[in-house]
């Protein structure tokens, strides 16, 4: 081998080694921050855990209390948001997969839906503010739920569309050949087959809205007291975390960490569950 070829070879090998080593470093770097963040949340959250979190209301400045009204508010608003967003999302996803297909209308809706999926959530809050809060004249739990519903919608549309497209065409053809009308094919054959996938979308949407803060800031606002009336301002865990973390009181900081810890656990559990459901769906 000439010395030139040898040099070239060595240079290429060195370049290769350096690049691959850097990729390992980048992965370690990326994971380092994420592990640090999780660790901070867990250690601060665990030390702030106590039973009164679930039995007491959010406290006035500087004193001790729990997060009960925030948990209830979050669950009620998320529940309503899912109740509004999921059926509309499933219907729209079905329209895309079964009727619109690759037509211009279908592709346009898909495009718009994908943009909604990544659009800043604060924008949805402003939208619902203009739509509901401004017209009714006051903040309310309903407005918060509606803002969350607009975040649920694109997630469910996307997964329903994708999952229905995975259903083998033979199923549609077999059912249609028996003379079953298309709406019945959809409801009784396709949904049954795509159910785990659609459930995944539901769980992902639930995980997504559990930690959403921005759209609630000026729709549901906040409420320091017990409130199960959704036509009034309502507390939610993320907004309480935001408010308490920005405050100067240590007891509020502890509550914020406890809330953050529970929300993180909840979101991780939902994501893992949705993955498990999806994996089972794909092996079936």
């Amino acid at each position: 081998m000439t010395s030139y070829a040898e040099k070239l070879y060595l240079r290429r090998a060195a370049m290769n080694f350096a690049a691959l080593a850097m990729s390992g470093v980048a992965t370690a770097f990326g994971l380092f921050w994420l592990v640090w963040i999780l660790w901070t949340t867990f250690s601060n959250g665990v030390s702030a855990m106590k039973l009164s979190l679930f039995t007491e209301m959010t406290p006035p400045p500087g004193s001790d209390g729990g997060l009960l009204n925030a948990f209830v508010g979050s669950l009620m608003m998320s529940g309503l948001a899912l109740a509004i967003g999921t059926p509309i999302g499933i219907a729209a996803g079905t329209f895309l997969a079964e009727y619109a297909k690759r037509s211009v209308l279908g592709e346009t809706i898909r495009f718009v839906n994908d943009i909604l999926l990544s659009a800043p959530s604060i924008v949805m809050g402003l939208f619902v503010y203009a739509l509901v809060v401004k017209t009714t004249g006051h903040f309310s739990g309903y407005a918060g739920a509606l803002a969350l519903a607009f975040i649920v919608l694109p997630v469910v549309v996307r997964t329903t569309d994708e999952m229905l497209q995975l259903v083998p065409n033979q199923m549609r053809e077999a059912a249609l050949a028996l003379g079953v009308p298309q709406w019945k094919v959809t409801l009784q054959v396709l949904y049954r087959s795509a159910l785990p996938g659609i459930l995944t979308g539901f769980l992902l949407a639930f995980a997504r809205i559990s930690g959403e803060t921005a759209p609630l800031l000026f729709t549901a606002l906040n409420n320091q007291y017990w409130a199960s009336d959704m036509s009034k301002p309502m507390a939610s865990v993320p907004v309480v975390i935001f408010q308490y973390a920005m405050s100067p009181y240590d007891s509020w900081h502890a509550l914020a960490w406890a809330g953050a810890f529970i929300v993180t656990l909840f979101v991780l559990a939902l994501s893992i569950l949705s993955r498990a459901v999806l994996r089972r769906a794909k092996t079936l």
């Binding site: 640090w36 997504r208 559990s210 953050a260 929300v263 979101v267």
Partner: peptide, 14 residues
């Protein structure tokens, strides 16, 4: 999938 508010809190306190 971790909510962005967690990143914000970590940012502020840590």
């Amino acid at each position: 999938g971790i909510p962005s508010i967690i990143y914000g809190m970590w940012g502020l306190f840590v």
